[in-house]
């Protein structure tokens, strides 16, 4: 039953990801991307990482997906000409996939079952973030601030006369 849930989630995620990668209609592809990321966060829930799943929904659906649909809307003038699709990419992607699956199947240490662990609480994540990973956290804070300012400056209209 739990496994059935996993396969449904995985099929939904991969199906909508494929739709996002190949659908010629830009807006439909962007919305499939959103569904794919809901699927990924459900996978995180299924694996017991609730916090990461929620952060994923928050960041990707609440912010990145909205940004992407807005960017599509703002850059839509020629829209229809951009349906080009490069078939050599399919070959490369399939080759990489075959290589990855082969190496996964070859390594016997991968066919293990999950051990019983106590659920990860948000408090524990907070404690770890604030003690062991406090410098990376600061770094991410600085990075996000810089990204915010950089994006603003890049997207700002030139005020040239």
């Amino acid at each position: 039953m739990i496994n059935i849930a996993f396969f449904i989630i995985a099929a939904l995620t991969l199906g909508s990801a494929l739709a996002a990668a190949t659908n010629p209609k830009l807006m439909h592809a962007a919305l499939s991307f959103a569904i794919a990321f809901v699927g990924v966060s459900t996978l995180f829930f299924w694996l017991g990482a609730e916090f990461v799943g929620l952060v994923q929904i928050f960041v990707y659906i609440g912010a990145v997906a909205v940004l992407i649909v807005f960017t599509i809307l703002l850059t839509r003038r020629e829209g229809e000409q951009l349906r080009g699709f490069n078939w050599s990419g399919v070959v490369v992607a399939l080759a990489v996939f075959a290589g990855l699956v082969w190496s996964i199947l070859k390594s016997p240490s991968m066919s293990i079952l999950p051990p019983e662990v106590s659920p990860l609480t948000v408090k524990r994540i907070g404690e770890v973030l604030m003690s062991d990973y406090v410098w990376p956290l600061m770094g991410v804070g600085v990075l996000l601030t810089v990204a915010l300012l950089g994006a603003l400056i890049l997207a700002m209209e030139d005020k040239r006369e």
């Binding site: 991969l14 990801a17 494929l18 190949t22 992607a93 399939l94 990489v96 990855l100």
Partner: peptide, 8 residues
Amino acid sequence: LFCIGLLA
């Protein structure tokens, strides 16, 4: 999923 991303 990685390969679909690569494809895109």
